[in-house]
Simulated assay, not measured.
Amino acid sequence: MLEEESEDDFVRAGRVIAKICSNLHQLVGDSFIQYRMWTLISNGVLAFKGLPFALYQYCVRVV
């Protein structure tokens, strides 16, 4: 298990976005990545827990 994962496979959203920004070789802002993450949550691809209005206050996982 990775250190950023909890026992229920949720990963902090801030870590996911930071990892995407550091590995992406295109000029895409973190606000777009967060928007896209919420689109995937709305479509049922990702699940979340925590406070949805604060980036570092919620976690996501693949459903």
Rank of each mutant, 00 (worst) to 15 (best):
42 S>L: 03
15 R>W: 03
27 L>D: 10
35 Y>K: 15
50 G>D: 06
50 G>A: 08
62 V>W: 05
39 T>P: 01
13 A>M: 08
28 V>S: 04
57 Q>Y: 06
21 C>H: 04
57 Q>K: 14
7 E>Q: 09
10 F>Y: 15
53 F>C: 11
21 C>N: 10
1 M>S: 09
21 C>A: 13
46 L>F: 15
40 L>H: 11
44 G>P: 04
9 D>L: 06
1 M>Q: 08
54 A>I: 15
23 N>C: 07
32 F>H: 11
7 E>N: 11
41 I>V: 15
52 P>A: 09
17 I>M: 10
5 E>C: 07
60 V>Y: 00
19 K>G: 06
58 Y>R: 07
56 Y>R: 14
23 N>G: 15
24 L>W: 00
29 G>C: 11
36 R>L: 14
52 P>N: 05
9 D>N: 14
49 K>S: 10
50 G>S: 08
58 Y>M: 03
29 G>L: 04
22 S>M: 12
4 E>A: 04
58 Y>C: 05
34 Q>M: 07
1 M>H: 11
13 A>F: 02
14 G>E: 13
30 D>M: 07
39 T>C: 12
49 K>A: 11
35 Y>V: 01
63 V>H: 09
40 L>V: 01
7 E>H: 06
27 L>R: 07
46 L>S: 05
40 L>W: 11
10 F>K: 05
54 A>C: 06
41 I>E: 04
2 L>F: 10
61 R>I: 02
28 V>I: 13
61 R>M: 07
55 L>F: 00
55 L>D: 00
20 I>R: 02
40 L>G: 02
61 R>Q: 12
47 A>D: 14
41 I>A: 10
37 M>D: 03
3 E>C: 01
43 N>E: 15
4 E>S: 06
21 C>M: 15
33 I>A: 03
14 G>D: 15
15 R>Y: 08
22 S>T: 08
60 V>T: 06
8 D>E: 12
31 S>M: 10
48 F>H: 07
55 L>E: 03
24 L>M: 10
10 F>G: 02
31 S>N: 08
41 I>C: 02
51 L>M: 09
27 L>S: 14
62 V>M: 12
24 L>K: 03
47 A>S: 15
9 D>H: 13
46 L>H: 06
16 V>W: 03
15 R>E: 09
28 V>R: 11
34 Q>K: 12
40 L>R: 11
25 H>G: 03
37 M>K: 01
15 R>H: 06
13 A>S: 15
43 N>I: 00
7 E>T: 04
17 I>C: 03
51 L>C: 05
58 Y>K: 08
16 V>L: 12
59 C>A: 12
19 K>V: 00
12 R>L: 06
